[in-house]
């Protein structure tokens, strides 16, 4: 028996929004620790890693480990049938292993819906992600990062991110010319969410495809802040924390400079 109840049901909508450009199907792994998902996009350039810890749910029961192969397009259709203030419960029954049920309850309990969705047999690879001490970790407002990625993609297909102790510089070039956006570390801020904080061991310069970074910024509604972790010649990690529950992380392989 698996049952996970989330009072803040709209969180699932945000999570699906944050994966929709990268994934069409994925396996949700459920255990006593929580629900997790790891999947590469079809081009194997990026990897999505979601963690929702069991203690972040309002009720959580997982008697045995369970892998649910989910068509995310179908799940999105079903989750759209919930209202933003609905309580969502995800249920899977050991006696009926080919389906998962989503139950939506209105806050006043006057409307209760349930939708049973067919599960898929997915043959997905699970990648081991090594613990890494990154050369640079930048925390910045998620909306600011979204804006930078959007603006840079007006100029070119790739962005070069150069991070020093002074700040982080985003550069793009294309047929129309070049663009640079430099964001300095915050001197002092009243609100933690508005801060730009750079933790640096050594300066790093890496180039990434903006197409993917823009897909990642679909997660902006999940968190006020985003963190970018970089080391030379390894994938960038873009992390959005999900308050009191876990995270949505994206890994993106760098581009090789010409």
């Amino acid at each position: 028996m698996f049952e996970a109840r989330l009072v803040q049901g709209s969180l699932l909508k945000k999570i699906l929004e944050a994966t929709k450009d990268l994934l069409t199907e994925a396996t949700f792994d459920c255990s006593s620790t929580g629900m997790s998902l790891q999947a590469m996009d079809s081009s194997h350039v990026s990897l999505v890693s979601l963690m929702l810890r069991s203690d972040g749910f309002d009720a959580y029961r997982c008697d045995r480990n369970l892998s649910m192969g989910i068509n995310l397009t179908s799940m999105t259709k079903i989750i759209k049938c919930s209202s933003n203030d609905d309580v969502v419960t995800i249920k899977a029954d050991d006696n009926n292993p080919d389906t998962v049920t989503f139950m939506f309850e209105s806050p006043n309990q006057e409307k209760v819906s349930d939708f049973e969705m067919k599960l898929m047999d997915l043959d997905t690879e699970h990648l081991g992600i090594p613990e890494t001490d990154y050369s640079v970790v930048v925390k910045m407002p998620a909306q600011e990062f979204q804006r930078v990625c959007r603006d840079m993609s007006q100029i070119g297909e790739s962005v070069t991110i150069c991070c020093t102790k002074d700040g982080i510089r985003f550069s793009a070039s294309g047929d129309l010319g070049t663009g640079n956006i430099k964001i300095a570390q915050s001197a002092n801020v009243d609100k933690e969410e508005e801060a730009v904080v750079i933790e640096m061991q050594e300066a790093v310069t890496l180039t990434f495809a903006l197409r993917y970074l823009n897909f990642f910024t679909r997660a902006t509604s999940l968190s006020g802040q985003v963190s970018l972790s970089m080391s030379p010649e390894v994938p960038l990690v873009v992390e959005y924390k999900i308050a009191d529950m876990g995270y949505m992380r994206y890994y993106l392989a760098p581009k090789i400079e010409d």
Binding site: H44, L47, E125, H126, L127, P235, A253, K255, I256, E257
Partner: peptide
């Protein structure tokens, strides 16, 4: 894109 590296060349299958 020949300059784009694959994520699978960094992380191994479990």
């Amino acid at each position: 894109d020949k300059n784009q590296m694959k994520i699978s060349s960094f992380f191994q299958c479990d």
